[in-house]
């Protein structure tokens, strides 16, 4: 049974999601009402998937994502957040979250998203696809720093797939339209996330070296 932790500062919402997950056959091993609590409880509860709200007291959702993954790289973070928190969602994904779902999503969509996240699949909403597309455009348009890493680029196929996701097509519809397999569509989507996360990690290390923090980190 998949072990899940639910993090949300709103008690009513937190209980509701936990109940849906339990009824849907998941094991809710912990819940947390703020970011600090989430980071403290995770090591003992050992969740496979963390369903995470981004607007949290004490520690932000982005910071929670970063710390959870630093402590256990195998944990999967699914952001379940209100729509309209664009910058936060993108930061969380760059920090390693592999999925995003809006709170207005139905129960079935939530259960499906947790299942797919547990299997290691990237869960993209059209909204997330739009954010990731925008981020790659921004990276390729911004002047590259000399001696810095080259901005990551999407292949034409990856861009095409992401745009179709953003326009609301399901993986199945995309596979049909582009005449490729469902698995290939998944891989393309996954690749875009990996590139973004990798670039983010390289940037962080470069920043640490520039600031002279590398000695303290090692």
């Amino acid at each position: 049974m998949t072990r899940v932790m639910v993090v949300d500062d709103h008690p009513m919402w937190r209980e509701g999601v936990a109940r849906d997950l339990t009824e849907g056959g998941f094991e809710v091993v912990a819940t947390a009402g703020d970011g600090g609590e989430a980071v403290r409880r995770a090591p003992a509860a050992r969740p496979q998937v963390v369903v995470l709200d981004l607007q949290l007291p004490v520690l932000s959702g982005v910071e929670v994502t970063r710390r959870l993954l630093a402590a256990d790289p195998a944990v999967r973070v699914l952001v379940l957040s209100a729509s309209g928190e664009h910058a936060d969602v993108l930061e969380a994904v760059k920090a390693g979250a592999t999925g995003y779902l809006v709170k207005s999503a139905s129960r079935e969509e939530l259960l499906d998203a947790v299942t797919r996240t547990a299997q290691g699949e990237a869960v993209f909403t059209p909204g997330l696809a739009g954010l990731v597309l925008g981020e790659f455009r921004r990276l390729s348009a911004s002047p590259t720093v000399p001696a810095g890493p080259a901005a990551p680029r999407l292949t034409d196929r990856e861009t095409e797939v992401l745009r179709l996701v953003a326009k609301g097509l399901s993986y199945k519809q995309i596979a049909e339209r582009l005449v490729i397999s469902h698995r290939t569509v998944q891989n393309h989507v996954q690749n875009t996330l990996t590139k973004l996360q990798l670039h983010n990690r390289v940037e962080l290390v470069r920043y640490a070296i520039e600031q002279g923090l590398d000695d303290e980190l090692s």
Partner: peptide, 20 residues
């Protein structure tokens, strides 16, 4: 432009934009 387009979002209309 994001602010103007986001206003069209309803239960049947999804609006996707960049973060910036």
């Amino acid at each position: 432009l994001r602010a103007l387009l986001s206003a069209y979002a309803t239960s049947s209309v999804t609006v996707s934009t960049p973060a910036t």
